[in-house]
Design a protein around this nucleic acid. Structure first.
Length: 256
DNA sequence: ATGGCGCGCGCAGCGCGA
C-alpha cells in the first residue's frame, strides 16, 4: 500500500493539482493538511468521481485536515476530545486494520510567542491522545505536517535556522516524546541521509536552491516498522506551477 | 535586520505561514 501526506496550502486553489496527482500516483491513502476549507464546502463529489472516499475536518482561512482513501473510511474522529483545540488540526479514520491520522501541528510563530507555548501544549495533548489511540489500534500511521525538523540533517542551513521556530530543542523534544510512545519516523527507517526536505519557502527561489526543511512526516507504529519498501519526496509536485510550498511525502509498505 | 511569496478575506492591505 502507498500512503502519502501533503500540505496543500488551500484545497480550493490546489484541487486540480491534487486530483491530477491522485490520478497519476494512485495512492492507497493521501492525508491532506491546510485545506482551509469548511466542512460544508469540502469537495466530496470531486473526490468521489475520482474514486476516493474522504474524511475531513476543516474551517475557514486556517488549518483543516483530510484523509483521502481508495477504501471506505470507518470510525472517523474529527475532534479528539482531549486535544482541547480550537483549530481543526486532526482527523482520524480506520481503513481495514489500519488507523490513519492526518495531523497539522501548529507553526509556533516565534520561540518567545504565545503561539509557541500553544504549539508545545498542543504536542503534549496530541501525544496523550495518540497513546490512548495506539492502545486500541496497534497498526497506526500518523501522517502530516508536524512543523518540526527533527535534527540538523533536516535543515538546509542549521546555523541560519538556529533559534528559529521549527528547529528549537523544545519542539524537537516534543516531537521525540511523540515517537517515544511507539512510533518510527518512516524516512529515518529508510535512510540516514540528510538534505531530504519536504518544504521550501516560496521566496528567493528557495526550491531551486534546495533551501528546504523536512517538517512533514509519516510515523509508523511498531507493527508496521518492518514493512517499508520505499520512502520518497515528490519534488516534481513542488516544482509545478501554482504549487503548494510543501511537496508530497510518499511511503510504500509491503503486506499491508 | 528586513522582506522576499502565496493564501484568505474582501476589495486594501494585513495576518499568517515556515
Amino acid at each position: 500500500m502507498m500512503i502519502a501526506t501533503w500540505n496543500v496550502n488551500s484545497l480550493k486553489v490546489r484541487l486540480p493539482q491534487v486530483l491530477g496527482w491522485l490520478e497519476s500516483k494512485k495512492p492507497t491513502i493521501l492525508c491532506l493538511q491546510e485545506t482551509k476549507c469548511p466542512d460544508d464546502a469540502f469537495p466530496v463529489e470531486a473526490f468521489a468521481e475520482a474514486g476516493f472516499h474522504v474524511a475531513f475536518s476543516g474551517q475557514r482561512t486556517y488549518n483543516g485536515v483530510a484523509i483521502v482513501s481508495q477504501e471506505p473510511l470507518q470510525d472517523v474522529n474529527t475532534n479528539p476530545s482531549c486535544l482541547n483545540d480550537v483549530g481543526k488540526r486532526v482527523v482520524a479514520a480506520t481503513v481495514g486494520d489500519l488507523r490513519i491520522v492526518s495531523v497539522y501541528a501548529p507553526n509556533g510563530q516565534a520561540p518567545d510567542s504565545e503561539k509557541y507555548l500553544y504549539k508545545l501544549a498542543w504536542y503534549a495533548y496530541l501525544t496523550d491522545w495518540v497513546k490512548t489511540e495506539l492502545a486500541r489500534y496497534p497498526a497506526m500511521i500518523l501522517a502530516g505536517d508536524f512543523n518540526v525538523a527533527p535534527d540538523d540533517r533536516d535543515v538546509y542551513d542549521p546555523k541560519a535556522w538556529q533559534g528559529h521556530v521549527l528547529v528549537t530543542e523544545k519542539e524537537r523534544e516534543a516531537f521525540r516524546r511523540l515517537l517515544q510512545i511507539g512510533f518510527y519516523d518512516a524516512l529515518r527507517l529508510f535512510t540516514e541521509d540528510g538534505g531530504i526536505y519536504t518544504w521550501w519557502d516560496y521566496r528567493q527561489g528557495a526550491f531551486w536552491r534546495n533551501w528546504g526543511l523536512r517538517i512533514d512526516h509519516v510515523l509508523l507504529s511498531e507493527v508496521l516498522k518492518n514493512k517499508i519498501l520505499r520512502v520518497e519526496v515528490d519534488r516534481k509536485a513542488r516544482g509545478a506551477k501554482k504549487t503548494s510550498d510543501h511537496a508530497p511525502l510518499i511511503v510504500t509498505l509491503k503486506d499491508v
